[in-house]
Design a protein around this nucleic acid. Sequence first.
DNA 1: GCCGATTCCATTGACGCCCATAATGTCCCA
DNA 2: TGGGACATTATGGGCGTCAATGGAATCGGC
Lengths: 159, 159
Amino acid sequence: MDRFVSNYTLRLDSKGRVSIPASFRSVLGRDGFDGLYCYPALDRPAIDAGGNALMSEIEALIARFAPFSEEREQFATALYGTSETLKVDGEGRVILTEPLKIHAGISDTVAFVGLGHKFQIWEPGRFRSELAEATQKVRALKAQLGAQAAARNAPGARE
Amino acid sequence: MDRFVSNYTLRLDSKGRVSIPASFRSVLGRDGFDGLYCYPALDRPAIDAGGNALMSEIEALIARFAPFSEEREQFATALYGTSETLKVDGEGRVILTEPLKIHAGISDTVAFVGLGHKFQIWEPGRFRSELAEATQKVRALKAQLGAQAAARNAPGARE
DNA sequence: GCCGATTCCATTGACGCCCATAATGTCCCA
DNA sequence: TGGGACATTATGGGCGTCAATGGAATCGGC
């Protein structure tokens, strides 16, 4: 498996350490990145995290804008400027920095959420409501897609 | 055969394990996926399951949206974030995670239902009523199609 | 020499992996 | 065509390994 998938809720210990789920660690290992690359998610109270795959994606995003353009500077600031590369200890744990924890509202428990090429770290309660909202939206969109397909094809064809 | 077809009702053992029907296993084997990819079905109390074919479908759905777009993050959260890749033991069994079982209302018995490129896992009672309902709809639709065909062709021609 | 940070061990509970058994089908041959 | 040997499936349980977690020990900096 080369994707971050599923979600796990884990506790921070008294030193603020938290284990990266084993399946995520194996993806990171294959990705060949030493450490954990993370930054505050742009539009949600969560932490984006990943390895080389995530870094290249960000690079590509920024490269789309002309050098010295206002947008480019802003994206670079928001993404690179707030990024951290966390060390991973021998047991596969990291210590989240204070800014990251504040941005996500994290205290003593976190939810790791796989998003394919990257994953996010959430305060579990906030994640639950975000998930509920996202699920609603996907349901609506799926229904809409189904309706379009039914309209295009002769009636009767179904998934 | 490279499609999931038919349905099977099997029991979970004391450790929560359940055998994947042999015919489904052979399809999965041909698909070349190590494990069983599954997630809560969007609009029904069941679990969607499959292999690479199913995962590619999800991937394609998400790839339609631009990286870092709001829609993409939400889709990824609702789909990848709730997916699980279950390990299959030497005897072809899996252990369903708690969230999956809750979503489908599963306790100690499940129904495996082939849907072609994927299959679903149901609580048997719920599946029966779902099946009854679906059968009704298909009957109605078939009657409707028959009527249309009869109208198009000269009267008399039948399926 | 003191404190914070990082590395190293120790526990425990879950899970993966292995083998055993039973029940059901399947195939072959008399 | 009937019966019996064989194969395969579903199921049950034991045991070793690993992950998550906690705490001790060691290192480095101020």
